[in-house]
Amino acid sequence: MDQSSPRNTSVTVADVAHKAGVSKATAARALGGYGTVSDRVREAVTAAARELDYRPNELARSMTTGRSGTIGVVVGDIENPFFSLAVRGITDVARQAGFTVILINSGEDFVAERAAIGTLLAKRVDGLIVSPAKENDVEHLHEAVRSGLPLALLDRGSDTLDVDTVIADDRHAAENITRRLIALGHSRIAYLTACDTPDHRFRTAKDIGTGSVRRRIEGFLGVCREAGMIGTEDWVHVGAITPEHTQRIVTEMLQSAQPPTAIIASDSIIGLEVFKVHRRLGLSIPDDLSLVSFHDADWTSVTTPPVTVVRQPVYDLGATAAKLLVERLNGEAQTPRKVVLKNEIVERASTREARF
């Protein structure tokens, strides 16, 4: 081969076989890692492939082996540190098991999620890990399951999908943090989430399509009712979908006649915007406002004051979902499994007794 010429990017298995002096079928077995070939032949085929700069045709390989070696992952918001860390857990486990991850961001949009599933099915992925945008709109996931494709749900379960599921104990975490705030004398506690409703008003937890958030709100409202607090539904604010939306909602809350004395942020992106607004308005955390955020993002421990958080086992959520899926792909699992991982409250300096 002329070393000065560009390498051929369309080298075939037949070319490698000719170079190695073996049959095409033998070269395919050696390159694909299936069947039986001698070490001498495998070394000869590998050397020929390297010299010719052979690139395997993954589609052809999938048609031969029935596997593409890929796992499709669909999450709500890859810019959210929660999903970034969960995907890291998925990719670490997948890579160790010999799988490549194809990641698609749905933007928490059901239509985009459905299109993403279609794209991944077309790419012949071996399995799916999905964090559903809406737990009640999962017919596209049912279709994937009916087609025989293994599926694992990440962070958000579904009562209608009997598949492997990994979630965190969000309801109990919300109950525990709400009880702590009430014990500090807080009665005006706001819960702020990016989840939204058609008219941007919260009425009942059934309005919330994202299961993990719905469980948190149910825990929050349940403890408030136990404490004899009334009208707590009015303290749940939805629609914090962008920093601008969040800042507007928080500003209106804190400048109202009856501002909250404590805010629970449903994720760290919202929590950061709450922190920014309180400073812009000249308020003090925790003297004027107590703040708790779900997810132990890096920024929460370096602010003044550092923020009390619900630390979620985010990496383990992703890693466990990938582990369950890989086990199913390898035929090691029968009945669907549901794994619930524990959250942890990390007390810092952003909460104190209510002053009024």
Rank of each mutant, 00 (worst) to 15 (best):
R328Q: 08
R311A: 15
S350F: 07
T320S: 01
A319T: 08
R311Y: 05
Y315G: 10
L325W: 04
L317P: 10
V346G: 07
Y315H: 15
A319S: 14
E327S: 06
A321H: 07
T320V: 01
N330H: 13
K342L: 05
K338A: 09
K338H: 04
K342F: 03
V310N: 00
K323C: 01
R348I: 14
N343M: 01
E353C: 01
L329C: 06
T335R: 11
L325G: 05
K323V: 02
R348F: 13
N330T: 09
L329K: 02
T351V: 12
L329W: 00
N343H: 11
I345P: 02
G318E: 07
Q334L: 12
P336H: 02
A354P: 03
V310S: 03
E332R: 09
R348Y: 12
K342V: 04
Q312T: 01
T320E: 09
V339T: 12
D316C: 11
Q334E: 15
P313Q: 07
G331N: 07
R352P: 11
P313L: 11
R348Q: 14
I345R: 09
V346K: 02
D316K: 14
R348V: 14
Q312G: 04
Q312H: 11
A319V: 05
V340A: 07
A319E: 06
G318Y: 10
V314I: 15
T351C: 11
L324F: 00
A322V: 06
N343L: 03
R348E: 06
V310F: 05
R311W: 07
E332N: 03
T335G: 08
L341N: 06
R311E: 13
E347P: 00
A354G: 05
A319I: 02
L325H: 10
L317C: 12
E353A: 15
A333R: 14
G331A: 07
A354F: 06
I345H: 03
T351P: 03
A319Q: 02
L317R: 00
L324T: 04
L317Q: 12
A333N: 06
L324H: 00
A319H: 05
R328D: 06
A322H: 02
R328T: 13
R337N: 07
I345V: 15
V314W: 04
R337I: 14
Y315L: 06
V340K: 09
Q312M: 13
T351H: 10
E353T: 13
R311K: 15
T335D: 13
R355S: 10
K323P: 00
V346Q: 03
Q334D: 15
T335K: 05
L341M: 14
A321R: 02
K342A: 10
R328P: 05
K342M: 02
A322Q: 03
V339K: 10
E327A: 08
V314K: 02
S350C: 08
